[in-house]
Design a binder for these strands. Structure first.
Lengths: 155, 155
DNA sequence: AAGGTATGGTTGGATGTCAAACAGTATGCT
DNA sequence: AGCATACTGTTTGACATCCAACCATACCTT
């Protein structure tokens, strides 16, 4: 006869097998929690971590083109199209014609974009503080250092 | 006159502003790289990290119901519906009628599901090893410990 | 026993993401 | 100068995910 699977006691806690030992799994859990708090913090502004990152990178590199933004954010070029559509619709970002190349768009923050980014950065700083509330300054540094050692060849 | 934004030198490297100091950002980068390697490792099996996690949890808790799986995987209940649809279509998981409750489904791995999971676990172990290639055993432990300190209240 | 409330699974709509295919433009080779 | 190749932004289609609404079933209070 076939081996019967013993069912679990419905009142028992769920167990996670070998998952908790996996770094990839723990990272995923942490990121889900972070995303949640991030969304809650910036709730009223309709800004995701990805959009925030894009704004920061555009401000730091005014005039960059979409493909460069895609590489920097690790997004597909086609995803960047709708991302920029979104930000442009909200008048936070402008697509200008690039200097020497009629194919590419030179991206820039509008004054409104810069102003909003300032506010967001304050909120993100608060979020980051909550995220790291249980970590000493030293631990935070260690954490970042360790994270950077994961697949450094992909950066 | 309005303040002109100084455009960046097109030949220069892209800079990332304050992003690299953010734990949330570094975590995101690491996770993207991990996801990429994971997908490449299990490429032929059409299994995402989420699906793998679900299989592990179902095996470790045979007979659990979809809502419990949703909580365990941090997915929405509606997402679990299509996830289980997927696995059931591939005959890896079964929805059985639960013992005392006609609303809920008792989830179980099929023999094929168990067999596949065995193979996957070997591949995931390899993936995990690659991921941690630059980390000593001690560092790996430290990393997991630090990750667990991020929003522990959400676990 | 009956009614209201809570729970389990499902559906439909919105969004974010990737991958593949495309047209316009630039670059390089001969 | 002309042609092949590469790159830029875009469109389309597939998929995962969330949220809100829904129906059926279970539970609880009286």
């Amino acid at each position: 006869m076939p081996p019967k699977t013993k069912l679990r006691d419905p009142a028992a806690e769920i167990t996670f097998g070998a998952l908790p030992d996996l770094i990839g799994y723990q990272l995923r859990l942490a990121q889900i929690a972070i995303f949640r708090d991030f969304a809650q913090t910036l709730g009223s502004y309709e800004i995701s971590p990805g959009l925030f990152g894009a704004l920061v990178i555009i401000e730091a590199n005014p005039g960059l083109k979409q493909t460069e933004l895609a590489r920097a954010t690790r997004l597909d070029r086609s995803t960047v199209v709708s991302l920029v559509d979104n930000l442009e619709r909200r008048a936070l970002v402008e697509r200008r014609s690039a200097a020497g190349d009629r194919r590419s768009n030179a991206l820039q923050l509008t004054p409104a974009g810069k102003a909003l980014l300032k506010k967001l950065q304050r909120l993100v700083a608060e979020h980051e503080q909550r995220l790291a509330a249980n970590l000493s300054a030293k631990e935070q540094l260690t954490l970042v250092k360790l994270l950077e050692k994961i697949f450094p060849e992909y950066r």
